[in-house]
């Protein structure tokens, strides 16, 4: 029987991590679902849905040679597949400001209270080491409409953070 697993792999970035890992999975007869892979600082992170008849232990053994040889850490969770159920976000929030402790939790906390269900969050640190700036783009569903989110952001923005919310009107044609 086929099972879905969430495979999480992290480690110091080096060449061809994705190529080596996906090759091992392909050779082992695994099917891949949705995935997010990216460089975060000097590290590489992978979250990947994997479908296979293998047990969790067997899957672990399958990727072990690659994981060990590239100095990575892997973690496997059994999950429900739930493909083909994409939620379409209806708002996008842009946040940026001088990097300081608490900026994410402050913004995200205020938005959650105002009804935002996050579908996607990406953040980055730019600027220089002396003057870092924090950038964040959040997409999600405004379960109580956009107005409460706007009010929540206005309060946050008074604390020296630039924040903007846009409605996403998806064009289907």
């Amino acid at each position: 029987m086929n099972h879905w697993y969430m495979l999480t792999v992290v480690g110091e970035d080096r060449r061809a991590i994705v190529a080596h890992l996906t090759h091992a999975l392909y050779e082992g007869g695994c099917n891949l679902g949705e995935a997010s892979m990216m460089r975060l600082g000097g590290n590489f992170s992978i979250m990947m849905m994997v479908q296979t008849t293998l047990s969790k232990h067997q899957l672990d053994q399958l990727i072990e040679p690659v994981v060990d040889s590239l100095g990575l850490h892997a973690h496997i969770d059994s999950i429900k597949g739930q493909l083909h159920q994409h939620q379409i976000p209806d708002v996008r929030v842009h946040v940026n400001g001088a990097d300081r402790a608490g900026i994410v939790s402050q913004v995200v906390g205020a938005l959650a209270e105002a009804g935002l269900d996050i579908t996607d969050l990406e953040s980055d640190v730019a600027g220089t080491e002396q003057q870092p700036i924090y950038l964040m783009i959040i997409e999600g569903h405004a379960s109580e409409g956009i107005e409460p989110l706007r009010s929540a952001l206005e309060i946050v923005a008074q604390n020296g953070i630039d924040a903007r919310i846009d409605e996403i009107e998806t064009m289907v044609g």
């Binding site: 083909h84 159920q85 994409h86 379409i88 976000p89 996403i168 009107e169 998806t170 064009m171 289907v172 044609g173």
Partner: peptide, 13 residues
């Protein structure tokens, strides 16, 4: 920048 979907590409935007 804007979000698009297509009747020829189900379940993706």
């Amino acid at each position: 920048l804007g979000r698009e979907g297509c009747m020829s590409v189900p379940d993706y935007t």
